[in-house]
């Protein structure tokens, strides 16, 4: 039965009962209503309204559930769906809503995927050009400077040595930029080496990064390795910047189903109810790309743990 006819029939039923009561009950209403009569009629009307409200509430409750889901849905945590209960049009509405969610989630994942892979490709290209063009030319300049300095008179040589140092600094700077853009070690030596290097980069006087990368991991596709690397990088960045942690454990292990699991856990302050920032949302988007499950939790005693499970 359509929503229109349900509401119509509910109202019709209530009004019919009221009319029947008026017709067949042994009562009369005086031309000028007496107090008792007025009270009875008002009470009758109130009962009618309450009955109407209850019936409507029951009839429309699936819509209220739907509204709640609609206002709280988060496309970065896919999989929330309503059971298509209720009758006729309402069940249809819920089914249509679920189908729309499916479509939105797919579209969101694929457009985020396109954006992320375009970004990664661009970073890769820039890093490579920095390395291969500017880096090599500066290297040649550095070597030439050394030769020229050797053959120059003393006062000029001192100045040339300074030029050599500034050339060296800019070469170091270019290398740092290129590495931040795209870690060459990941492409050349694979994930285990890249994570080892990452742990080393984040280790400072105040923060110890302990890494445990199991050696018998399954061979992973390039895009999965990149997601694991970026999630580890982001988690370590958060731990180093916000958590005031002293220790971070970085563990990459195999799961029972043949997939892998990355866990980054620190002993810092924890999330303390802070809303998810762009960093964590970025991790969720990357996790969606490879169908992985990301969870970010704070322990009771503080500390934050980021877990990424990649199915086989």
């Amino acid at each position: 039965m359509s929503l229109f006819w349900r509401i119509f029939s509910l109202n019709a039923a209530v009004l019919t009962v009221a009319a029947l009561v008026l017709l067949f009950a042994p009562v009369t209403v005086s031309a000028t209503a007496r107090l008792a009569e007025a009270l009875i009629i008002l009470a009758g009307t109130a009962v009618t309204l309450v009955a109407n409200a209850v019936m409507l509430r029951v009839g429309l409750s699936p819509l209220a559930r739907l509204t709640r889901v609609m206002t709280t849905i988060d496309l970065l945590r896919p999989g929330t769906r309503l059971v298509a209960r209720g009758q006729g049009e309402i069940a249809q509405l819920i089914t249509a809503f679920n189908a729309m969610l499916d479509r939105l989630e797919t579209e969101r994942a694929s457009s985020a995927g396109r954006a992320l892979s375009a970004q990664e490709a661009e970073r890769h290209r820039i890093a490579q050009e920095l390395h291969d063009e500017i880096g090599q030319t500066l290297t040649a300049v550095l070597l030439d400077l050394k030769r020229v300095a050797k053959a120059s008179p003393d006062p000029v040589r001192d100045q040339l040595l300074q030029v050599q140092e500034s050339t060296r600094n800019s070469l170091d700077e270019i290398r740092r930029i290129a590495r931040r853009l795209r870690p060459g070690v990941l492409d050349e030596l694979g994930l285990a080496s890249a994570l080892r290097a990452l742990a080393g980069e984040f280790t400072t006087a105040g923060l110890a990064v302990r890494r445990q990368v199991h050696s018998d991991l399954p061979v992973l596709p390039k895009e999965v390795e990149l997601v694991l690397y970026r999630v580890a990088q982001e988690s370590l960045t958060n731990a180093a910047r916000h958590s005031a942690a002293q220790h971070v454990d970085l563990v990459l292990s195999e799961q029972n189903d043949g997939g892998v699991r990355l866990c980054v856990r620190d002993d810092g302050r924890g999330l303390r109810g802070a809303p998810e920032g762009a960093g964590i949302r970025g991790m969720r988007e990357r996790a969606l790309l490879i169908g992985a499950d990301l969870s970010v939790e704070s322990g009771v005693t503080g500390g934050t743990s980021v877990q990424l499970s990649v199915p086989a």
Binding site: H131, G135, Q136, T139, L142, R168, L171, D172, R175, A178, R179, P183, G184, V185, E188, L189, S193, A194, R196, A197, G200
Partner: peptide, 24 residues
């Protein structure tokens, strides 16, 4: 150009005796 100790260790593994950065 790569300043990453993992490349150094890999170089060591494949038989290299040393590792020099281009910037040095």
């Amino acid at each position: 150009m790569y300043d990453n100790e993992q490349f150094f260790f890999e170089a060591l593994r494949v038989g290299a005796a040393g590792y020099v950065l281009k910037s040095a």
